Simulated scan of single mutants.
Amino acid sequence: MNTDSARDDLAFMRALVEPTDDWQKQFGETYSAAGLCYCVQMLLHGGQFFGLAPAGGPVALAIGLGPTVVFLGLLIWIIRRNRSGAAGGATSRAVGSVFGAVGATNLALVLVIGSVAWRWHSLGVWLIYPCVVMILQGLAWLVAYMLRRKSWLALVAIGWFATGFAMAIFIDNMGGFVVAAGVGMFAFMLLPGLFMLRQSRRSA
């Protein structure tokens, strides 16, 4: 047996089960920022459903794209601000890699589902995309639970799965669809992000 290789493997496994949660600070900042942006978006979509906001034109385009643009700006700011900090342990890198892979997969899904919805002129096909995004979020949180073995991570994963399922049920009812998405964003994105921020400050 290669002694150096065995020592490296042991160090990696020890890092995966380390009791510290240093990964939570930056991730909590990012996730709570995303939760806030998309909760606002769901509220604006609700306004469109009830006729309080225009469903077409520049305002509707801003409602559709604005939250993502704002979030990307916040994400760049968070990354640059934390660039000089510690790189984090194995858990931080593993969790970050999983959520990064989910983000890249979302882009591929936009191209696949979006192209079919455009060719078929079908809003119903396009609405499958956000349902799948919720399931992928649940997948990422399930991996985080497997790495950290903390029950609240599993609850968040189950919450995302339930959100995707609820949205699929209401896919032909835009009001229910928006409510299901909004509740999911608030309960399983904004609140977990704020919780992780609080936990990181308590352990600092």
Rank of each mutant, 00 (worst) to 15 (best):
R93I: 09
G66H: 06
G66L: 05
V69A: 15
A101F: 08
R83K: 15
L61D: 08
R93D: 05
W118L: 06
G73N: 08
I78T: 12
G89D: 14
T68Q: 12
V110H: 07
T105R: 00
F71K: 01
I79F: 06
G96P: 15
W77C: 13
S115N: 12
N106I: 03
I113Q: 04
A94N: 07
G89T: 06
A101G: 07
S115V: 06
A90W: 06
I76E: 04
G85W: 09
A117H: 00
W118R: 00
V59M: 10
N106K: 04
V116E: 04
V59W: 07
A104H: 04
S97Q: 12
S92W: 07
P67A: 01
S97W: 13
A101I: 13
V70G: 03
A104F: 10
I78E: 11
G100L: 11
A94L: 11
A60P: 00
W77S: 12
V98Y: 04
A117K: 00
V59E: 07
A108Y: 03
V69G: 01
I113E: 06
S92Q: 10
L109F: 00
R81L: 14
N106W: 07
A104S: 08
V116M: 06
G96F: 15
R80Y: 00
A90P: 06
I63W: 03
V112H: 04
G66E: 01
I76P: 00
I76T: 09
I76V: 15
G89Q: 14
A62Q: 02
G66K: 00
R119N: 06
A94G: 07
S115W: 07
V95D: 02
A104M: 13
A87T: 15
R83D: 15
I78S: 03
P67Y: 02
S115F: 09
L65G: 01
S97Y: 13
N82E: 12
S84G: 07
A104W: 09
V116S: 03
G96C: 13
A62Y: 01
V110L: 10
G64Y: 08
V70A: 13
L65T: 02
L61S: 03
L65R: 01
A87P: 13
A87E: 15
G73A: 12
L72G: 04
W120S: 11
L109P: 04
G89I: 08
